[in-house]
Nucleic acid binder design. Structure first.
Lengths: 350, 350
DNA sequence: TTTGCGGCTGTTAGCGGTAACATAGCCGAT
DNA sequence: ATCGGCTATGTTACCGCTAACAGCCGCAAA
């Protein structure tokens, strides 16, 4: 005598369970739950009722395999603690929200080999597209991405050659413009404070552009200081103290990001240093945090939200990039002079 | 004449492609790529070489369907911009890193219906476990989670009844302890500044505990102020100004989070208010940011990193919770008095 | 009545892997 | 020589769902 199939109440449900409970074929249930194809109103209700009663949750793995469609978009960013990337993610989510696509976040910690692992992992789920920060990737990552057969959007940066599409700003140019503004304001003994991270290519490009513009004005960096790890605000404070002690005649501090810039600003205010008279300050990014500071740090908005939005639009097919293949969108960051750069040129001593 | 199967170079690769390229069966390729079962060294190399040469990326969708195993762990948090949750995620990642499990993040924006959608979406991918913030969920979410058949860990909070396991702190108690400390330090006219968010249950519990302890000391809140949206630092500053103008005799401000607390602190320092002499301040969370401030805000560490670690360990089966079902781990937040609470009791007026 | 067509439902054949079992050599012990 | 027990590899049958197509029914037009 055949053992009757024990109706295990703990087994996870399938379409068959719903189809049996509602007396129609699995296919019809599938149609109802996806709102695809014609189903009579009475059947639809019966099926929905059964699905709800059983607490059925469709198995997207099976669905994706059968339909060869996955409603996921991979988003690979270097860090979450950066304040910058949550903004990008918000932009991405805003757009994907009403496309049926769903972002999935991966974090590379600024490590190429980690990024490679994340790219591999994500591609192995056959997403509808991939958004990732930066134009610099390991050879293997590059190869995988180029082969992937789905739209790839590299974001944040456009100084380089994208694999497919790119949305971002020119960090080189951002650095250049900041330097020009600073020089035009009459500052001459300018120092740079930044991160040590060897893989923060964008910070490097900003610095390169910055030095380039200085050179064009006949100047060079008067000093520089780097840090890694720890609270950025605290580090900014410490670095500022260090550099001002070492080079007391510095008249401008350019920070590679707003967080250390804010730390430096707080330090200067505390010390009663005349900002922006005796010392000017500038950061990069336009983080919301700055709004709460006693005085507004000069910065440059990196268009993070727009970058997220545009990248998502390319993936979602709302813009050519994803289909035709290879759109490059350059956004132009707005310089926000704030209160930490002198307004007028004071004919500085050389 | 049958049309020969065009060797479309753009088609995505399958095991069959690798198996043909290396002259073994698909099964053997599968074994090599997963390091499962015995395969001779020579075959292994041949297969790996072919896979690498072709740029093969396995299809995890098919793999997961066949093996009924998915190496993903859903992590559902209310917000990314909170500074708090990235820390939790770091704890989760640290543990999952060497278990073959991979975290997938979802954001609910403090909206129950949004959370419900994310829970549904995640469960439909049949993850190995789910970690989600808070003990309060919609009925539908609750039902789905209870039915899911995988370990569920609710984090951050333990004041309530978990579905399965829970790791967190008692926010009620945290509020109580803070109130006790404040009262013991001699403050009497105490105000609360917090968020408007109706679904931030943890902030609510802290406030409830806080008021409870005040009541026990014969006190009530002297004033309160709420905000929503915008830069938390700026809002903290503004709210502080508002409340101090409205109730000038306030001698303590309790903030529902460190970010608005920091804003308030900056405002007070700027105004030259004697902190902690005339006015005491305290926040909640122990965010790294505080390290960079001119003076250390009193706060309570919410053990975010540990919460992430422990939750992940339960999912990964390194602790009983996930298998036996239903472990509750209460962590005890450490109060960090900082520089914004008086050290000694000054026999205050009432 | 016949025909055609559109609305609704069912059937079949995979999607690309993997579990489980089957098989083929090869070796040493009996 | 025979056998058992390895190791290395192949075969088969799904996993749970959906694309594609096939059928059925009723009704309007011919």
């Amino acid at each position: 005598m055949a053992k009757p199939p024990a109706p295990d109440p703990r087994r996870t449900l399938t379409l068959r369970d719903v189809s049996e409970a509602s007396g129609v074929s699995e296919m019809t249930v599938s149609r109802v739950l996806r709102n695809r194809g014609d189903v009579s109103e009475s059947t639809r209700e019966r099926v929905l009722e059964a699905a709800r009663r059983l607490g059925y949750v469709p198995n997207k793995i099976a669905g994706a395999l059968a339909s060869q469609r996955v409603n996921l978009v991979g988003v690979i960013i270097p860090s979450l603690s950066n304040m910058v990337f949550p903004d990008v993610l918000t932009g991405v989510s805003d757009v994907l929200e009403d496309t049926g696509l769903q972002p999935v976040v991966g974090v590379s910690n600024y490590l190429p080999e980690r990024e490679e692992a994340v790219v591999y992992e994500m591609l192995s789920w056959r997403p509808s597209g991939l958004i990732l920060a930066g134009l610099e990737h390991s050879d293997a990552s590059h190869a995988m991405l180029a082969q992937a057969g789905v739209p790839i959007v590299e974001i944040m940066d456009i100084d380089g050659t994208p694999i497919d599409s790119a949305v971002g700003i020119s960090h080189r140019r951002a650095g250049r413009e900041m330097a020009e503004t600073i020089v035009a304001a009459g500052y001459r003994r300018i120092a740079f404070l930044g991160t040590q991270m060897p893989n923060d290519h964008r910070a490097k490009k900003r610095l390169a552009g910055f030095e380039e513009a200085l050179a064009r004005a006949g100047l060079t960096l008067a000093d520089r200081e780097f840090y890694s790890g720890g609270s950025a605000l605290l580090k900014g404070r410490e670095m500022t103290e260090t550099i001002l002690k070492r080079s007391p005649d510095i008249d401008f501090l350019y920070y590679s990001n707003d967080m250390i810039g804010a730390g430096g600003l707080l330090y200067c205010l505390e010390q009663g240093i005349d900002v922006p008279g005796r010392l000017g300050l500038a950061g990069f990014n336009g983080v919301e945090l700055l709004d709460g500071l006693p005085c507004r740090l000069a910065t440059m908005d990196a268009c993070r939200h727009d970058i997220g939005r545009l990248a998502a639009e390319i993936i979602a097919g709302k813009r050519p990039g994803g289909i035709v293949g290879g759109e490059i969108i350059e956004l132009t960051p707005k310089l926000q002079p704030g209160d930490t750069i002198r307004k007028t040129q004071t004919g500085g001593t050389i």
